[in-house]
Design a protein around this nucleic acid. Sequence first.
RNA 1: GCCCAAGUAGCUCAGUAGGUAGAGCACAUUCUUGGUAAGAAUGAGGUCAUGGGUUCGAAUCCCAUCUUGGGCUCCA
Length: 579
Amino acid sequence: MSAYSLEELRHSASHVMAEAVQRLFPEAKFAIGPAIENGFYYDFDLPRPLTPEDLEEISRLMQESIKARHPFEREEVSRQEAEQIFGDQPYKLELIRDLPPEEPISIYRHGAFTDLCRGPHVANTGDLRWDAFALLNTAGAYWRGDEKRPMLQRIYGTIFPSKQELKAYLDQLEEIQRRDHRRLGRELDLFSLHEEAGPGLVYWHPKGGRIRTIIEDFWRMRHYEGGYEILYTPHIGRSWLWETSGHLDFYSEGMYAPMEIDEQKYYIKPMNCPFHIMIYNTDVRSYRELPLRWAELGTVYRYERSGVLHGLLRVRGFTQDDAHIICTPEQIEDEILEVLRFSLRLWRDMGFENVVAYLATRPEKAVGEPERWEQALVSLRKALETERVSYKIDEGGGAFYGPKIDLKIKDALGREWQMTTIQFDFNEPERFDMKYTGADGQEHRPYMVHRALLGSLERFFGVLIEHYGGAFPVWFAPVQVQLIPIADRHIAFADEVLARLKAAGLRVEVDDSGDRMNAKIRKAQLQKIPYMLVIGDREAETGSVSVRLRTNENLGAMSVDDFVARATGIVARRENYNL
RNA sequence: GCCCAAGUAGCUCAGUAGGUAGAGCACAUUCUUGGUAAGAAUGAGGUCAUGGGUUCGAAUCCCAUCUUGGGCUCCA
C-alpha cells in the first residue's frame, strides 16, 4: 500500500503522462497538469489532434517510465534560470511571469522530463502502479479557461494506489453509464428530444407524463399545505415588461428573439418573476396581506449555447417550480427558514437525504442598499444554522440583485446536483415599484425572494431517473403492477384483477400478448415494474395472485385483497423501495 | 460559441482498394397456450443527417450546414 496521498499520486502521474507525450511529440508545448477530484489531467499544445491510438501509446510509454523507476528530483531555481529552462515553452513562461516575485520557483525532474511545479510528488515514478492508472479521454480546453485564448488538448486520466481501487472506480463509471437518463429515458419510454424539431426541447411520453403528473400533484398539495397560492401566467410578454424588469438590458442574450404582433415585440419568457409582480401590482397592498407566497409551474425558454445542451439536464425549454415570496422586513427571517425547511422536506420525500448548501454573498457590482443585503444574508445564514445544514460560503458569488442559497443534492452514486435556489431580489421590486402600506400608514418596499426547489421539472426528472436507475419507488412508478396471465384462458381473471387493482388506485396493466410467461416476466423486469402478478390455473381457481418483485424475489400466492393492502400501504407511505 | 469525435432500419451496431446496403432486438402475420428473465417460422421496414462537389459510378473521397457525444467557456 502506498503512503502517498491520492493528490501526490495523481499529480505525479500527470507528470509521467506529460513525459510520455513529450516522447511522442517532441515539439509539444506544455500548459498545466493538476490533480483533480477523480484523477488528473494535463493540457498540451500539439501539432495534431490526439487519437485513441495515441492514448494507448501514451499509456504504454507511461508504464515504461514507471517501470524504469526514475526518481523525482526537486530543485529551486532563480527566475532567470527558470526562464532559460522553459525558453521554448510559452505557456510555462507565462506561468513563471505570473508567479509572485517572493515565491521560490521550483522545478521537478524525472527521467528526461522537467516541469515547472510546486509539488509535492512521489519519490520515484516506480511508486506509481503501472496497473492502477488509466487514461480516460481527451478534450479541448482553453488555456487558462479563457475562451479568447488558444484551445489546448487535454488528456484526462486517473490513478489509484491499487489495481482494485482503479477497477472499483471504472466499475462506478460503468454504473453511471448504465443509469444515464438519456439511455433509460429511451429504454423505459419516458421522454425524447428531437433534433429536427429543435434541440433542447423535451417531449414527455405517456410514462414520463405519468411521473410528471405525480410529481406535480404532490408538489401542489405540499404548496397549498405550506401556505402558497398557485398562479398561472402567460408564456409571452410585450417588450415593455422585459424593459421594465431589466432583462432586455442584461439578459437578452439568453432570450429567444422577439416576435412581432401589431407592431409590438413579444418575447417568450425566460423567467416568471415579472408576471408575478404584475399580479402583485394589480392592487394596493397592505402589510396585513403579507407574506404572499405565490408559486407557479412556469414554463420558460432560454437560449442556451449549443455546446452546453445535455439530455434533460441542460435544455432550452423547461418548467420551473418557481415561487416568489413577498414579505415585510420583519417577516423575512421566518420566511427564509420556512422555505428551507419546506425544501428539505420535499427532497426527503423524493428520496434524497443528503444536501449541501452554498451561501453566496454580495458581488462587487450590486444593486440594493447594503443594510438590506446584510439583513438578507443574516436571515439566510440563520436558516441554515437552525436547520443544521452544512454550508460553504461563496464569497461574492451572489447575483448582482441579491444574495442566495443554493442547495446541491447528493444522489445515490454520491454525485452532487445543483437544484434548489433561494434568491433575494433587490432589483425588480425597485424597477416595478412594488410597495405595500405599513402599519405606520407609509409606503414601504417589500422583500422579494425567488425560489425554485426542484429547479426545473426536466432537470429534476433527469436526476430522479439516474438516482433510482429507472427503478422508481412504487409511488412514482408509471406502471406499478404488471399482470401476467400464463395462457389466454387466464385473461378473463386477469381482467377481473385489473379492475379491482384500478379501483384501489393502482396503476396496472395486463400483458395479454401471445408471449410466453417467461418473456412477459422479462419484459416487465426490463421495464423495472415493481410488482409482477402471475396468473394461471392455480390463481384463477383460488382467486389469488402470485407476486414477484423486480428484485427477483418471489413472494408466492396471496389473495387479491392482501396484495392491494400491501401495495397501497407502500404507496401511501411513499416508501422508496418495493419490499 | 470553441476543440475533438460521430451521424447507416424504431433501438444497438456491421459495412475502407468507391460498384445502387446487412445483423440482432423491436414491429406485423401465422403456429405455439407455455409456471417466474427471451418458443418458432415468415414478412415488412433504409433518399446511408442535409446540401453541394469530385467521379462513368459515392454510405464510402472533399466542402459547407445541422445535430449528437466528450470536454472547455458560459449558466444575471
